[in-house]
Amino acid sequence: MSVLEIRDLQTTVETEQGTKQILRGVDLTVKTGEIHAIMGPNGSGKSTLAYTIAGHPKYTVTGGTITLDGEDVLAMTVDERARAGLFLAMQYPVEIPGVTNTNFLRTAKTAIDGEAPSIRTWSKDVKEAMTRLRMDSSFAARNVNEGFSGGEKKRNEILQLELLKPRFAVLDETDSGLDVDALKIVSEGVNRAHEATDLGILLITHYTRILRYIKPDFVHVFVAGKVAEEGGPDLAERLEEEGYDRYQVAESAADGADALNVG
């Protein structure tokens, strides 16, 4: 049993208008096997939370802690966090020209495991995972995310999730830009990873749509850089009906945060 623990997390980002505070004291505890949905209006700081956990250099942590089984995550470099078992499925996966997906996956797997995967089982694993995500085999030889459609990029993120087998995954708006079929395929992948390795999941989303396919144990409503309300799956149903309107006062307090999500 592992625990990812976030306590009173405060994050700022540098903008042309000066330093802006985005996260204003976030508390969250995710245990092995748990699925937590983080929901909230645009600009509430959801993506900032995702990138802060992963260690994006653009964000400065000004207070609070993130620990993984007691280990100080904030003291780790980006790659150390990944090797410690954290994974971020990005909203806008980056294109890497000249680096094939095959080469990238093998390099990442080797880095995470500390040793090269067995050639025979590895290529079989990759092939099968791609088939399950309905990814054409040509994606293996293509450069990472280059010329991929939005949906293909998201599948490629989940492919990495399934192959790298982290302990905790942060899914940053994985549902955005997906049609229903793609959303189903991607959700199935997330559920497979959850079952296969008892993955702990932090599912960041604006809409309740993805929660039809990925069932959260806990729902947190994120407003103005912190958790405004917490509950079980029923909270998501309530948000479906009522939207974020009743948090509106709090939302305007986070004014300006909208443009600061990494995009």
């Binding site: 992963a54 260690g55 994006h56 250099p57 470099t77 980006v78 790659d79 966090r81 990944a82 090797r83 994974f87 971020l88 990005m90 996966p93 980056v94 890497i96 020209p97 000249g98 680096v99 080469n103 990238f104 390099t107 990442a108 880095a111 995470i112 450069n143 990495q160 790298l164």
Partner: peptide, 20 residues
Amino acid sequence: FYLQSRGITEEEARRLVVRG
């Protein structure tokens, strides 16, 4: 950042990017 977030060290990530 993308490569490092997959566990690849900064040095190796740089090498991959230039090579690519």
